[in-house]
């Protein structure tokens, strides 16, 4: 307990980043800005993981979410034409107050309920890669294999879905 105030301050900053960037993703009209702010939200989330002592998870978070998923989504943004006057769903266009009231009615009790959790003993931080790896490759080995098959299937599926049907060579030349 050397740094008495650092952890709460860092936590407050990160929480502000996560929530603020997340809200901006939903509220902003520009899709590229949304994508970048989503990356910011993910980065702050990685900071929270570090604060919780799960550095490995934080590294994976940045590697997968910031390095892969955000880039993929920006690709998607760039390959499609953006814009349009209405950016919100038809159902919610006129019903903002109603929608806000509905979401708040569920969200506020849940968030308040979340505050009631308290932990008996904080785990010591650091060095979480060894137990994590042991768990993945022993108890969850089957799930790990299934996950790898899922990834392979997703990869093949994505390639098949986005592949253009190339006309045969002769056809293309005649056109």
């Amino acid at each position: 307990m050397r740094f008495d105030f650092v952890e709460p301050v860092v936590f407050a900053l990160l929480a502000f980043g996560v929530i603020g960037a997340g809200a901006a993703v939903v509220l902003l009209n520009r899709v590229t800005a949304s994508a970048l702010l989503m990356a910011l939200s993910f980065l702050c989330m990685a900071g929270m993981f570090v604060l919780l002592g799960a550095e490995t998870i934080a590294a994976f978070q940045v590697l997968i979410y910031v390095g892969a998923i955000t880039v993929l989504i920006i690709f998607g943004v760039q390959f499609t034409k953006q814009g349009g006057d209405r950016s919100y769903a038809l159902f919610f266009q006129k019903q903002y107050p109603l929608a806000a009231a509905l979401v708040a009615a569920v969200a506020i009790p849940v968030v308040l309920f979340a505050f009631s959790f308290n932990a008996p003993t904080p785990q010591p931080g650091g060095g979480d890669i060894r137990p994590l790896a042991t768990s993945v490759f022993t108890d969850f080995a089957f799930a790990f294999e299934v996950a790898s098959v899922l990834l392979l299937a997703a990869m093949v599926g994505a390639i098949v879905l986005t592949q253009r049907d190339e006309p045969p060579d002769g056809m293309r030349r005649r056109r």
Binding site: A39, V62, V66, G67, T70, V71
Partner: peptide
């Protein structure tokens, strides 16, 4: 991890 973040800046 940090190496993979560079891509974002370039895009």
């Amino acid at each position: 991890t940090l190496g993979s973040m560079t891509v974002l800046g370039i895009v």
